[in-house]
């Protein structure tokens, strides 16, 4: 009974935060409502006996990703827009409802096949969830793990190249930035100026 009450609290706050995040005209309010959603999703993970994933959810999503969003919002200083919804928003809401109905239908009308694994609740509790995760992650999934680290490395290089201001441009004191980091083509500087100035 307590678990069900907790589920209703966490689930209700999750959905409410998501709706506020999507529907609020103020972008900072949206980001903070998303923070509420992420923290309550961590509560859902605890109800599902996945404590380590709950901790990772709070650290990575609420700690890193959302702070990144807030930093970008702080850079842009967005004003409250009058027309923050697309003009076709009834179609968007309708498609969302259609997708929801289709997924509910598909999930609950299907017989789920699958073998029971060896990580029962008691086994996970006795060895610890972090231990259970680590055993599988560093044996069976070591190759995807390495690929994930490579993905993070590429994302780091890519975002530095995309968002960083090129040194050659700053030296020449130009107001714009060809946001690729590379030197602009010497053969056709006029064209690059045209593209940049004619914004």
């Amino acid at each position: 009974m307590t678990a069900q009450l907790l589920f209703f609290y966490f689930g209700g706050m999750t959905v409410a935060g998501a709706i506020v995040a999507v529907a609020s005209p103020n972008l900072v309010y949206s980001a903070l409502a998303l923070l509420l959603t992420f923290i309550h999703i961590a509560g859902i993970y605890v109800l599902l006996n996945a404590e380590f994933i709950a901790a990772v959810q709070i650290i990575v999503y609420a700690g890193a990703i959302l702070v990144l969003y807030l930093f970008v919002l702080m850079l842009f200083n967005p004003e409250k827009e009058k027309l923050y919804l697309h003009r076709q928003y009834p179609v968007g809401i309708f498609l969302g409802v259609v997708v929801l109905c289709l997924m509910l239908f598909a999930a609950f009308k299907t017989e789920i096949l699958g073998q029971e694994g060896s990580f029962t609740v008691e086994a996970v509790r006795s060895m610890g969830h972090t231990d259970a995760i680590g055993r599988v992650l560093y044996t069976d999934y070591i190759f995807p793990f390495e690929i994930a680290s490579l993905i993070l490395l590429v994302a780091m290089f890519g975002s530095i190249l995309l968002a960083g201001r090129g040194r050659h441009l700053r030296k020449r004191g130009e107001a714009f930035d060809l946001s690729g980091g590379g030197t602009p083509p010497e053969g056709k500087p006029k064209r690059s100026d045209e593209v940049m100035v004619g914004r």
């Binding site: 999507v22 967005p78 923050y84 928003y89 969302g96």
Partner: peptide, 26 residues
Amino acid sequence: FFLFAIGIAGVLIRRNIIMVLLSIEL
């Protein structure tokens, strides 16, 4: 599934590109 539907609706109805990225997080 409810979160997924809200995220899909958010991608479709918001005009700001940062909000589209936030909905993808959902």
